[in-house]
Amino acid sequence: MLSQIILFSLLAGSTVFIGGLLSCYFENRVHNKDIKELIVHYLISFATGIMLSAISFVLVPKGMKELPILFSTTLFILGGISFYYFDKFIEKNRLKIPQLIAMLLDFIPESVALGAVFVYDYKTGILLSIFIALQNLPESFNSYVELRKLNHSKYKALFQLFVLSFMGLLFSLLGYYFLDTHEKITSSLMLFSAGGIMYIIFQDIAPLLHYKKRKLIAIGVNIGFIIGMLGEAIL
């Protein structure tokens, strides 16, 4: 079991660095600004679909199984409120705190839940790891762009993403060792994360999908959600 948790946690975290590498490649190879911005917007759209599918197929339904409805809804709204205040803090310190830190908002609690959920629901653990991996890819792609705008060298930006890619493993192991027999705490964490991610989607991400009257960009949300549907059907 431990080896499987390590494997899938590394898989989920690896896309943080892979997304940065892809962003670096496009920075060096693609010089048309409009094409770059279009790619970023399509990736953001795809990530939105993945995040919605993670909420719909894993975080909310699995979290509600162990908790009463009133407590579940309370945790969900608390997640949204907490992410709201953290979002305000980031906005006030935008020059000091890059988008990279904002990505930790959903990556860390999801990773903790991943390590814990593997113990009592192996298939859900696999599905969650796939969601996290696909979600991290476009987020880290955009994080690299943000870091470069803050005048980080490409090597420094990639190094930060490389280090961050292993944080998922660290928090998954913490979840495995400390929450493996605490299903209610794990379920609470999943619902809290779901509420926070829902807030991020409609406050920060969805407005970015409007780009030069290219309405087709939003279809990326459907594609991302289909990936979640396929994962749920297969597992």
Rank of each mutant, 00 (worst) to 15 (best):
S187L: 06
K65V: 14
G79Y: 00
S23H: 04
F76W: 10
M51I: 14
S82I: 12
Y25Q: 12
M64F: 08
K154G: 01
L191P: 03
L134H: 01
E91S: 15
L169I: 13
I130C: 06
F26K: 04
F166Y: 07
S193C: 08
L208V: 13
T186H: 01
F162A: 15
F8Y: 11
E66A: 13
Q99G: 10
F178A: 15
F83H: 08
S129Y: 09
A47L: 01
F131Y: 13
G80E: 10
H152E: 05
L158S: 10
P98G: 15
M190Y: 00
G13Q: 07
F202P: 03
H152D: 03
L230Q: 03
N222W: 03
I50P: 00
F225P: 02
L114D: 01
L7D: 04
E232R: 11
Q99H: 04
A133V: 04
L95D: 15
I130R: 07
D87H: 07
G49N: 14
E232L: 11
E91F: 08
I132M: 15
P138N: 11
L150D: 09
R214Y: 05
L137K: 06
I201S: 07
F225V: 07
Q4H: 10
S140E: 04
P61I: 11
G19K: 12
L169T: 10
F162W: 07
G80F: 08
L2G: 06
G231W: 03
F159N: 05
L173E: 05
T48D: 02
I81N: 10
F26I: 11
F166H: 02
M1Q: 14
R148I: 15
P68V: 05
S140R: 08
L11K: 09
G49E: 08
L134T: 10
S14E: 02
L137F: 14
K154S: 09
S53M: 09
I217L: 08
L209M: 08
M1F: 14
I223L: 14
I69G: 03
Y120R: 10
V119M: 03
K65R: 11
F141L: 10
A194Q: 03
R214D: 07
V163H: 01
P138Q: 09
A194P: 07
A218L: 05
L59R: 02
S193Y: 00
L70A: 14
L7A: 15
P109Y: 04
S165L: 06
G220T: 02
K149I: 03
D180V: 12
L95V: 08
I6G: 08
I130G: 02
L75K: 05
V30Q: 11
L208Y: 03
I130E: 00
N142P: 01
F76L: 15
P98D: 11
F26S: 09
L95A: 15
F57A: 13
L164W: 03
N222E: 01
K212M: 06
E183A: 10
R214G: 05
L127C: 06
P68W: 06
N222G: 15
I101W: 02
I90N: 09
P207Y: 12
